[in-house]
């Protein structure tokens, strides 16, 4: 009898049996799932909970405040929030478009055969390899209003007679941030596009050439349609990166002047650590998350049609 029970238990825990293989899978991924839950889901739940409380500085394990929607009421009636949304949208459009334009162009260039192609590809990926904070500090020096390289170049090339106030002019500050972000972001687009380009069979181009298609026609009717699946995912990832990026803006302009570079992520930080309004900061963070999810779903939902 005992032997029968033991055999039954052994059978139940026999993870090699085909009917138990899914169990083994769950056991193997359990530590990772628990870890993700601990470091992502739990803080997310805390943030959502916090956004419905009127709290200045919360304390871990402290008593909760009563449920309130005042943070969201304040947010939707706040001029600052809508301005931050507008700045974020502008930055997302400009930086994503810029990164895709530069990234795709460099990928097309690096996809050709020429002398020094390996070095060119390495150079192309270099900005991506440089840690973000180091890249931003270097750009901050180059955009320095008093002694910066870009101002000096503008004078030498005759574009202006004096140094450009990159960080104390609303328009210039926005472009300083956008240029830095494009420089940091284009290599990712470039690498992804290059991988996509290399997966396009060369036969298609050869056949198109035989049919008399010129360069533009080959790009328009072969390269772009076949690159769209890769480009779509890349666009979403770039968009999310611009949405959540904090360090570039914080180091270069701090969100100023006159909030011309204050995005939702900078606003979240300011509400939490400058004004000590953690409830409001959590509300901005939660709304940013919702916007990101909606934008990603919209973009990923548009599956590119394959024409071949």
């Amino acid at each position: 009898m005992t032997d029968t029970v033991q055999a039954g238990r052994r059978k139940f825990f026999d993870l090699a049996r085909p009917s138990r293989q899914h169990l083994l899978g769950y056991i193997l991924i359990a530590p990772a799932v628990l870890m993700v839950a601990a470091i992502i889901i739990w803080p997310l739940v805390l943030a959502i909970d916090l956004s419905f409380q009127q709290v200045k500085i919360p304390r871990l394990g402290g008593a909760s405040r009563p449920f309130s929607v005042s943070n969201y009421t304040w947010l939707f009636s706040s001029e600052e929030f809508w301005l931050a949304c507008w700045v974020t949208l502008k930055l997302v459009v400009v930086v994503t478009a810029g990164s895709v334009a530069v990234g795709l162009s460099t990928a097309l260039l690096a996809n050709n055969r020429f002398k020094g192609r390996t070095i060119a590809r390495l150079g192309m990926a270099l900005p991506w390899a440089v840690p973000e904070i180091i890249a931003v500090v270097i750009f901050a020096w180059m955009f320095d209003t008093s002694f910066g390289l870009f101002g000096w170049l503008a004078i030498q090339l005759g574009f202006t007679g004096q140094m450009i106030p990159w960080v104390s002019s609303s328009t210039a500050a926005f472009w300083a941030v956008a240029i830095t972000m494009v420089w940091k972001g284009f290599p990712f687009v470039s690498i992804m596009c290059l991988a996509g380009l290399q997966s396009i069979p060369s036969d298609y181009y050869a056949a198109a050439k035989v049919d008399g298609a010129n360069v533009w026609q080959r790009f328009r009717w072969i390269t772009m349609p076949l690159l769209m699946p890769v480009l779509g995912v890349t666009l979403v990832l770039t968009l999310l990166w611009v949405f959540r990026d904090f360090s570039i803006i914080k180091v270069l302009t701090g969100g100023g002047p006159l909030r011309s570079t204050q995005t939702l992520s900078i606003m979240t930080y300011d509400q939490a650590f400058q004004y000590h309004n953690f409830g409001r900061a959590a509300a901005v963070g939660v709304l940013t998350l919702v916007i990101c999810i909606v934008a990603s779903l919209l973009m990923l939902g548009r599956r590119s049609k394959s024409i071949y």
């Binding site: 104390s168 002019s169 609303s170 100023g256 002047p257 400058q274």
Partner: peptide, 13 residues
């Protein structure tokens, strides 16, 4: 201080 800084920057710009 942020309000004063912003209004002063606006005054200058």
């Amino acid at each position: 201080s942020k309000m004063v800084m912003e209004e002063t920057q606006r005054m200058i710009i």
